[in-house]
Design a protein around this nucleic acid. Structure first.
Lengths: 213, 213, 213, 213
DNA sequence: AATGAATGAGTGTTCATTCAT
DNA sequence: AATGAATGAACACTCATTCAT
């Protein structure tokens, strides 16, 4: 049992090591431009080793995405679940969302790529994992309406719109984040903008709207 | 001059014909899956002909995108420019944006693909053409603040966030639009949701926010 | 029409050229060891050209086999159909069969390879084209029995056995034909044995048997 | 010495176990499609173990063939050696040959595969082991001629032709044995034909020929 | 002796682009 | 101007074999 656990631990460590390297390479070069060999070279292992842990290139890529999504959801839930006030929950979710991607900028790239390369798989994983978030968001809006903090609204549509807002800001930021691509297809970062700068205006827009009270 | 203009007219017509066919095929099959021959077959011309009007496959695809962006901007500006009230301008822009994509659903697909296939080119075209929109949006916000209709805000960030909101809703809708992919890679539409259903909740969120007044 | 015919003629010529080169290379190197590029190099054309004329490597290989089988059947039928006497027909068929393979030694190799690489396809083509031969062979045996030249026999089994005899001799010869394989996988011919040497003993065995009369 | 013999006995038993498993798997799946791991899994041992008993995959396969050939020769010789009459010896050899393959249908598959996968090795083993048979067959024919039972003939060629006849019938049967391949690449047997049905027509043809006496 | 994780050579096929006609 | 036959670079994946444990 010791041996098995230890072995399992080693295999698990290697799996995570591959996921990490793959996340980096895929984010830097893009799914299409990335050769499986690029990742195995980065890890200094043989190509075949990757195929011992993941079924194929696509499966590896989707695992990178799935793993990131799980971490994102966990991060948001662990923050929000301990709060009570609906507006506070929204603030916390917005902040955690942006902080997560600020800490994992490569994952923005991964998300964008999965979205376009594997529409249906993205939808499935997205719906599975992110669906939970939408459900909680709707509950939160209903609670806010019930206690009189929020105005009347169509809860389903509004939850969709808020979720869309976050994703839209993320993508806009992602598009403005990189100034130029160099010869190797790599990107040079722009340091003067931070994703978390958008926490305040987004929260304010969502809660207050534009019109003067 | 007559001859040249006429020739130019013919060439221009053919160019537009190619753009139209390409938009359709690219949207249906995706950029990667689309062979140049698919488009030339659709037009009943030889492959080589396309290369007389566009430098390469990528250039054709980007032209399809650029042409669509121009149409989108023109549609929004023609609606909004005749209005005075800042909130009304926002309402009109939101409505026109969603109506445009409801009328040109293929262009949603094109946008998503450009975004992921040609990051830097997308950014460039996006910034060039859409930059104008952002500038006008900022002006509108400033006008609204000046006349006391809008609360105080960081205009640049808020304009970004509103723009992001629209794009986010569009993408969310695009992801939910298609239920299942059939064997041919084609998609089956879902008829029970309309993009313009989001005009009201989006407008309301932007202008009013969530908190009860 | 002229153009089309001419074009068709050119395309047909190229097709036959590819079949001829493929037959040679496949026979020399074997199906597995032969790279598609080996054939295209032999023809001094690009790899892609082969794929304009044949669907894939397997399809090309099977076409080589099918084409050879058609030629074999045509050769046998053109000889035998003009004859009347059942024993003479058998003699002629045996002779033509061995002569064909003596003139097309590469085709022996092709047959052996198809047989093992593509069992089911071999069977299908074999049955389709060779089935005709078996039918005629049975008819011939029945005619010989009817006119009293042949003894009583089970016609179906005997036709099978005679056909098997020819194939068996062919294969035995094929196995003894090549002395050693050199480094390149090529073979050095042995000149002191001829397939047609077996015409007489085979014919004699089939018609007379071993027992003294 | 006891230990060594015992160990040798165990090793020998394991060797035979591997040969048996390999024969089955190779016959079912074919040489190319069979992975070394398939065999080691079937034996519930590690892959490396096979390499302790056989040099490589090819060597294992050829050993399977060689072992079968030895068994075939032994079967034929044990039957024929006790007989005197040349025609009876032929009858017995034909019957034993077909009976052997009827009892070891997997070995038909093995033979066919060796023949095409390893031409030269097949020839070598074939000549070594089967050469003995041809020699005895020639002696038998000479004895038959000497005692007046057989007609005059070229003994070498006729022995070849008779051997070829058996192999040809075997292969024809092998080709007709399998109706269709299912999805797994497996084959469905046809039950209405038996290899031993050919003992009589083959024997009759060899001894009597077709012509009425 | 036994294991099985790691290795990496090897290849069929697609399709954007060219250019002779 | 238009064509479409020809080109050839590019790349994922398998699996026999090895060797550290």
């Amino acid at each position: 049992m010791d041996i098995k656990e230890e072995t399992g631990g080693l295999a698990q460590r290697r799996r995570l090591g591959i996921l990490d390297s793959a996340k980096r390479i895929f984010a830097e070069q893009g799914y299409r431009r990335t050769k499986v060999e690029d990742i195995s070279n980065d890890l200094s292992v043989g190509k075949g080793t990757l195929y011992r842990y993941f079924p194929d290139k696509k499966g590896l890529f989707l695992s990178v995405f799935e793993y990131g999504m799980e971490q994102l959801c966990a991060a948001i839930f662990s923050k929000v679940d301990s709060m009570e006030s609906p507006p506070e929950k929204i603030k916390a979710a917005v902040r955690t969302y942006f902080e997560f991607f600020e800490d994992n900028p490569q994952f923005i790239e991964i998300m964008m790529q999965v979205r376009s390369e594997f529409r249906s798989e993205f939808r499935q994983i997205h719906l599975e994992l992110y669906g939970k978030y939408i459900g909680r968001s709707q509950t939160n809006l209903r609670n806010g309406m019930a206690n009189g903090q929020f105005r009347e609204m169509n809860v389903e549509q509004t939850a969709d719109v808020i979720s869309a807002l976050l994703q839209g800001v993320l993508q806009n930021f992602y598009l403005s984040e990189f100034e130029t691509s160099n010869e190797n297809g790599g990107m040079a970062k722009r340091a003067d903008k931070r994703l978390t700068d958008y926490v305040e205006p987004v929260t304010c827009l969502v809660l207050e709207g534009l019109l003067r009270r």
